[in-house]
Amino acid sequence: EVHNSRDSDSEESEEENPAEMNMVWIFSRRFQLSVPKLASRRRVVQELLSDLLRVSHRLFSDSFFPVLEPAIGVGSACEGWSPHKEEDVVYCMFVPLKPPPGHAFHLEPDTTGDVPQTSMRVRVELVCTCTGEQNTLCFLHHSEEELKRYQVASLLYTVCTGPYLDVEKIALWFQTFVISAWSVVPQSCHYNVQVLPSSRSCKMKLTKASGRSLFVETIFGVQQGDSDIFLSSQPTEARLPPSTTWLESYAVAEAKFFRHVARQAPPRSCHLKCLRLCARLLEGSGFSIYALKTIVMHLLTLIPLSEWQHGYLLLRVDDIMSYLRCCLEEKQLKHFFFGNEDMPEEISLPPAFQGAQPLNLFQHLAQDPAAQAEAMQEFDKL
């Protein structure tokens, strides 16, 4: 969970002084920046996932389904800057998957040619468990008759297609588990759950007796080595990849970066409010929220955190929008996690990332002069 209490403290102090008609106050009200009470709802979601995963560990301890690791809050709601209205906020929880005993995951580049190079497949291999301390059957060295007698099925027969981990089968397995396990989690006393249609994640609508709803999306990931970069079940907006294709995700590293900033930032830091405000400014435009988030992450490493106090809000907003305009003019916005020498040490990246040439998030503008001209015109209308 990512929450900057310093930022919320500043909001509370503004609420106490409604007559303070300075530009910061006007901007905040103009763009409805009084933040929904995200923190308490994030805690509810975090506790819910913890309870569900605890039940899953008991339920599947003697089977060979993927091992569900503790959930990690990712995305704008969990990072503390969601620009959406309270009823539209989706709390996104990232659940890493580990192989069960007798199995190993191997990441392979996706060679189908249908998706970008940042896509991979997760090949599942059976591993000998004959010498292990656990008294388990070995999928490699026990006969099929023995395995059938004990009703033991490997991961390859449950959530894989061929030798590859299947996103859609995992999503369906988890959705079915949530429905069956709901009655035993404490939250069932306060919420009714509805599992919403989703082929690559588990989307839940939790509704209280009062009618208030809470939306949660659980996505699944496989870690790349020991790094904070994962392969994710979540598809891009552009297309829905094949069910055995997993897309590279930086969501966990981003959440970790915002936790780092929250610890280092001064009291009443405005960086989250800047994100919300600029997201509102760009609402309805063709500019992606991810581009905005990337710009703010760059600026948080370039501008001293001491200069993100609340009194600097308008200056920092101006910096963000100026940075965006400069990137549009130069047709280049560097990806935050590739070849970035200013990366905080606590964020663990694969070795290939550190010496890599930065990816250009505005590559499409560099390749299409008409698209760049249109983007510049759209920016000038903001």
Rank of each mutant, 00 (worst) to 15 (best):
R58C: 08
T136H: 09
T112W: 10
V67R: 06
D62G: 06
V45M: 03
L126C: 05
R43Q: 12
V45W: 01
V44F: 13
V115Y: 01
V90H: 05
R43T: 07
F64T: 00
V89R: 03
K85V: 07
F64K: 01
V55N: 03
R43S: 14
L97E: 07
S50G: 13
S63G: 10
K37R: 13
G132R: 07
Q32W: 02
T111I: 13
C138D: 09
L137K: 12
S56R: 03
F65N: 05
V95P: 02
W81T: 01
F64I: 01
F139V: 05
R58V: 07
G132K: 05
V115T: 06
T129P: 00
G113H: 11
D114K: 15
S63D: 15
L48G: 02
P36L: 04
R43F: 10
V115F: 03
T111D: 12
L53W: 11
V45A: 02
V122D: 00
E108R: 15
E125R: 04
L49E: 04
V45C: 12
V67L: 08
L52V: 03
P83E: 03
F105K: 09
F60W: 14
E108M: 13
L59Q: 04
T112P: 14
V35K: 01
W81H: 06
F60I: 15
S61M: 11
R43C: 11
G113E: 07
L52C: 08
R54Y: 07
E86Y: 10
C78W: 02
R121Q: 02
K98R: 13
P70C: 12
C92Y: 09
L107D: 11
V74S: 00
S63F: 07
P36V: 03
S34H: 12
C130F: 14
E47W: 10
V44H: 05
V90S: 05
E108W: 10
A71F: 05
P96R: 15
E47G: 11
R41M: 12
F139G: 03
V115N: 04
V45P: 00
V89S: 08
V35A: 02
G73W: 00
Q46R: 13
L126Y: 05
K98W: 08
D88E: 14
E69M: 13
T112H: 10
Q32V: 07
L49A: 08
G132P: 06
L126Q: 14
D51M: 06
V95I: 15
E87Q: 13
P109T: 13
L97S: 11
C78I: 03
R43K: 11
V127H: 01
D62Y: 12
C128A: 15
P116A: 11
R54Q: 12
E86L: 14
A71I: 04
F139Y: 15
Q32A: 09
Q46A: 15
T112Q: 10
L33Y: 01
E133A: 12
K37G: 08
Q117W: 06
A104Q: 13
V122N: 01
T111C: 12
Q134G: 14
R121A: 00
L59D: 01
K98I: 11
L126W: 08
S34L: 09
G75M: 04
C138W: 13
L68T: 02
G132E: 09
R42M: 08
L137D: 08
G80W: 01
V95W: 03
S61W: 09
S63R: 11
T131Q: 10
V90T: 10
A39D: 03
P83A: 06
G80D: 03
